[in-house]
Write a protein that binds this DNA or RNA. Structure first.
Lengths: 245, 245
DNA sequence: GGGACGCTTTGAGCAGGATCAAACGCCCAG
DNA sequence: CTGGGCGTTTGATCCTGCTCAAAGCGTCCC
């Protein structure tokens, strides 16, 4: 990975080896945030920096679990499929999110980049050993996991109890909120996922997704910029339509 | 709490204070499993043993987060509701399950016992302090959280992509599997939740739940024993109908 | 043991979103 | 610049599961 090499060189030149993660775009949100300088150096030594293209598979359901990943740049899509091909997208991961930490020895879902992306990859056993020696890091990761769990709960409400319009409104507001929290551009808001992926996230069909977006557009609640960006024009009305929560 | 007192007395009489959790019905599945004797004693000293009646609220959405709980006996229902009353049940917790570990300062969901239940309750800051000193425990809790996350993922697939029949079949098989793993009776399998709660778990209505159960009964896949127990008669067919995964 | 309430079951009609089908338009390659 | 292909939009029809309604039944309390 040329980028790893150049990043490392850059660190060395600046005499910044004590905290290489300082150069990381996601350092504010990452695990690293909870580590002191010495721990960061140790963790960085265990990391393999990945540079990934668009539509690149990180792992698939059934694969043995070898690594855990910390996404630092780009968007990743996590999904699970039934035998007949029906797919449920579990979430769209943004910089700072963790993935791959699963119970058991095989992955139960698929992970694929939507955009070009960067991630720190760790061998799972090595990573767990690190956690065993760094209770702070383990506790921080536990907090990240509980945030993921809360996010999953909101998603379950969306899938189980919301109408099509509420689902799309919630999806847009949630994506904007999470993007904003990572200092990504929110106006216009990038939609790196296809309509099919929005459908598989919201439990709808592409036709319904398209129709609802069309209705929100004609209602002047949003403005569609091509197919892969959106400008939210009426926050409070969209919030109201989302069913909140 | 009379039961707390009597349990403690019982420990003392047997000279078993070194590992009081040995008497706990859920010791095999609990956090305690990952602790050595000394850690168990320390943790037990932090615990407040709760004895709860049926239909007893542990906490509600909006409450400040004060405690975390480790369920040791009984069934607890976790749910989230929208402003207009629509409810999504997130899960039915069984002995050994953790609850209450949420990000932020207020609970985002409701927790209520379905049956009489027992739990160990910990003050959250005290518990976090314990984790900080016991990386093993923190790591174990992280594994529990990742199991919850995997369970949530299965639930998202159920809610987003399965038909009514598949949802009910999946619900029954999942409940049986999880009950079995806790050494609870699985044949017949107790259903401590009402039809309304099954509906709010599966994202259906009570009428649809009742109709699907009726169809499974007439198809001789299950036998209903009153309204709150079921005997699974044809495993493999039910498995097939569940859409698996 | 009897009564009443609440949960569950069953039925009839309806509707939101799915399916099937076709046109549109953006983006990229040649 | 132009053609092709894929992703998206729009339209017509269908069907699964919801809503409204009422009867059945278990259980719990008196």
């Amino acid at each position: 990975m040329t980028s790893t090499a150049s990043l490392h060189e850059f660190c060395a030149r600046r005499g910044d080896l004590a905290a290489p993660c300082r150069l990381c775009g996601a350092r504010e949100f990452n695990l690293c945030q909870a580590l002191d300088g010495g721990q960061q150096v140790k963790l960085f030594a265990l990391a393999h920096r990945l540079q990934l293209g668009k539509r690149c598979r990180l792992f698939s359901a059934g694969d043995p679990v070898r690594y855990v990943y910390n996404l630092t740049e780009g968007t990743v899509c996590l999904s699970r499929s039934l035998a007949d091909g029906r797919r449920q997208i579990l979430g769209f991961l943004l910089p700072g999110d963790f993935l791959g930490f699963e119970p058991g020895e095989t992955h139960r879902c698929d992970a694929e980049t939507l955009t070009e992306a960067k991630a720190c990859r760790f061998e799972r056993p090595v990573f767990e050993e690190f956690l065993q020696d760094n209770a702070d890091a383990a506790l921080h990761l536990l907090r990240l996991a509980s945030t993921d769990l809360a996010q999953a709960a909101r998603h379950e409400v969306l899938l189980g109890r919301k109408t099509a319009t509420e689902r799309i409104a919630s999806f847009l507001l949630d994506l904007r909120q999470r993007s904003g929290a990572r200092h990504l551009r929110t106006q216009p808001l990038a939609l790196p996922m296809t309509r099919s992926e929005i459908a598989d996230y919201t439990g709808l069909t592409i036709e319904t997704v398209s129709r609802v977006l069309g209705r929100l557009r004609s209602g002047k609640l949003i403005e569609l910029i091509g197919a892969s960006a959106v400008r939210i024009l009426d926050d409070s009305e969209l919030e109201r339509l989302s069913g909140s929560a």
